[in-house]
Design a protein around this nucleic acid. Sequence first.
DNA 1: ACAGCCATGTAACTCGTTACATGATTAC
DNA 2: GTAATCATGTAACGAGTTACATGGCTGT
Lengths: 194, 194
Amino acid sequence: MRQDPAAQPLPGGPPLPVTSYALLGLLTFGDELTGYELKQRADMTLRFYWTAPAMSQVYTEVARLLRLDLVTTTVEGRTTRYRITGAGQGALREWMDTTPAGFPVLKHPVALRLLMGHVTEVSELQTMLEEYVAELVTNRADLAEVRASLVGADAPGELFFYPSLVADWGLDYFDGEREVTLKTLDRLAQENDQ
Amino acid sequence: MRQDPAAQPLPGGPPLPVTSYALLGLLTFGDELTGYELKQRADMTLRFYWTAPAMSQVYTEVARLLRLDLVTTTVEGRTTRYRITGAGQGALREWMDTTPAGFPVLKHPVALRLLMGHVTEVSELQTMLEEYVAELVTNRADLAEVRASLVGADAPGELFFYPSLVADWGLDYFDGEREVTLKTLDRLAQENDQ
DNA sequence: ACAGCCATGTAACTCGTTACATGATTAC
DNA sequence: GTAATCATGTAACGAGTTACATGGCTGT
């Protein structure tokens, strides 16, 4: 009673993993990209609010997208470029409009360790939080660079309007995290000298 | 040239997944818990900044912890309760003090979809963001309830001091997200009536 | 009697990772 | 010449999920 597995798995078949749509989305900005370039784009943008997929996964994903005719290829020597197809645009739009986004999942090792702070020393926790602040600063700077690169095409209606909204979102998020972390460091310091 | 796999995998063997330490951490608050209760605790606390593991995973994890002597069991009829051992305390402390926490990973489907906002209608995005705000309100309320349950044992030096720090962190995070989302909705509205 | 919660597990499967393997092109 | 970057893949593996399966206990 199963569907023919050789048939187009979309629609009706199993839904694609979100990362497939994420990569497909990277291909909607007008250019043809190689797997290698897709990875670079992902590292620049997706990593801040999704994940930076491993190189090998990028290649597995584009292979799948190709199989499903959601992308086409242009081969030049040893280099294969991927371009989104009409079917790909359709699948992406369909996914956006009909499946709920879902609530974010946060894997926050710093908060997790703080939760069980009583198993170690306060100084250990302070070091951890200070390192986290430093990493936040680095990451914020990276994202600010990306945001700066969008200036000039970030007005409403322009190609990078939405990416700029998301980048600003991320900057605010990093600022917020930094403030909460500093506040928490303050509360820890109070514990030392009460 | 491999280690004897029957030997104690810790230390020297493969490190435990973070979720193991998370569950171990839940057992450091003084009580013996069943797998079922561990799942409940995880749903109440871990879910906000780590994950709520599936029921089946909880049982697989406690089996592993038992195999490694990081927990012991007390069997009463069909019910098995888990208690952390000295070795468990040691492994947890060791993990906290010697392995870096790492930067948080955020899987944010709302931001991801906003990034490719140009493939759909603005109204679609507005609906998505409004739903997200609603979910944030619900989640914030859930966390506020947890936070309220800690009152009375949340002073420095008390058992739930650290959990209360983390809960307050989470509340601030939810508030921040809500504000950014509303701000983004404003910017989207400007696009409509420019 | 029946629903809902308590309680425990197995099996199949998918996503995504690391490690491995290869080789061309470009910059110094 | 040699290191870094570009470029593409395969294999083994692990974490974690859903679906499945079972059954006791509790309240109405």
